[in-house]
């Protein structure tokens, strides 16, 4: 009888061991992925599925002495493209005949490296290695990041075993149902990618250019209104606050960025234009991205983030003037 008990414990241990190791493995692979995606030279084609739409895109990425360079081009519909380097992000939008230029920000590695962040992450998400699969013709590991409440999305990621690059990415709701999916059909790592491929292909000269001004941190001495968000979902905290002009706007915008370590939410507060028509009122969605627009004390509040509707709404409706 005692023999059976020992066997039973052995079986339990066998079953529980992998689950504990799984979360650590998953986080380690995510760190490797984050590093590979930043430092490798690669070129690939992927499909993007969101809210019943499907698009194909091409990505080229290289890493050199000047840091990262990346170009993303739509292969379907309007030939929108985004070119990013360590100084600027240029978005070419042929459908609106405009080019939007923003300053780029340095990337931070997967947040798990910092123990402080890791603790915050594990409070709101669970990590799990789901085993092996085949994706884009390559052997892949599958990792799930599951949200612990309804205020953030989950991720299911397929990472190449060879080079740790991301091959497929599902953004899932609380029940594991995909909201947005990206899947590479082709991805190659290259030794060298020439500089020339990172030049935008602008056809026609009738494009309007919009450039953002540099952001600056607002000082308390400035004669401006201070803002705060009264209700933040668990784990979210202010990671950035600046005041800047958006590329096509006239007004200074207060920009606050909240993050739970994975999901990011931006809150923009500005004085409304004389012509405030066509502005976002209420909740609006675009695949996994949700936005909320409303007015607070005569100021326009816009909340944008790759979080569920409940989150942008909760944040947007609890913006208050700080006293």
């Amino acid at each position: 009888m005692r023999m059976w008990k020992v066997c039973g414990w052995c079986l339990l241990l066998l079953a529980a061991g992998p689950a504990l190791a799984s979360a650590d493995d998953a986080r380690q692979w995510l760190q490797k992925m984050s590093h590979a995606v930043e430092t490798l030279n690669y070129e690939g084609t992927f499909v993007y599925l969101h809210a019943g739409h499907m698009d194909a895109m091409h990505i080229i990425h290289r890493y050199g002495p000047d840091g990262e360079q990346e170009r993303l081009v739509s292969l379907t519909g309007a030939a929108r493209e985004v070119i990013r380097n360590n100084r600027t992000v240029t978005c070419v939008l042929p459908d609106s005949k405009s080019v939007v230029v923003n300053k780029s920000l340095p990337r931070t590695p997967f947040p798990g490296v910092l123990p402080d962040n890791l603790e915050r992450l594990t409070r709101n998400y669970s990590f799990q290695a789901l085993g092996s699969d085949r994706m884009t013709g390559m052997a892949a590991r599958v990792i799930a990041i599951k949200p612990k409440d309804r205020f953030r999305y989950g991720h299911r990621l397929w990472l190449a075993k060879d080079n740790d690059l991301l091959l497929k990415s599902d953004l899932t709701d609380q029940h594991g149902v995909p909201v947005e999916q990206v899947m590479f059909t082709h991805l190659t790592v290259k030794d060298h990618i020439p500089e020339s491929v990172f030049k935008p292909k602008l056809k026609g000269k009738d494009f309007t250019w919009y450039r953002s001004t540099g952001a600056k941190v607002p000082s308390a001495s400035e004669d401006t209104v201070q803002w705060q968000v009264a209700d933040l979902p668990s784990g979210f905290r202010l990671v950035h606050h600046s005041r800047h002009r958006l590329p096509s706007g006239e007004n200074l915008v207060d920009h606050m960025v909240y993050s739970d370590g994975l999901a990011t939410v931006s809150v923009y507060i500005e004085k409304p234009d004389a012509d405030d028509r066509g502005r976002l009122q209420g909740v609006s969605s675009m695949g996994a991205l949700n936005a909320y627009g409303g007015m607070v004390d005569g100021y326009r509040v816009t909340v944008v983030g790759e979080v569920p509707e409940a989150t942008v709404k909760m944040i947007g409706q609890s913006v208050r003037r700080a006293h």
Partner: peptide
């Protein structure tokens, strides 16, 4: 046509912050 809406602005601007986030 001929204008970039504030939405594009918000998107581009916000995504730079989302992009700086590893996962």
């Amino acid at each position: 046509r001929g204008t970039a809406t504030p939405l594009d602005d918000y998107l581009v601007n916000h995504n730079e912050y989302a992009a700086s986030n590893g996962v």
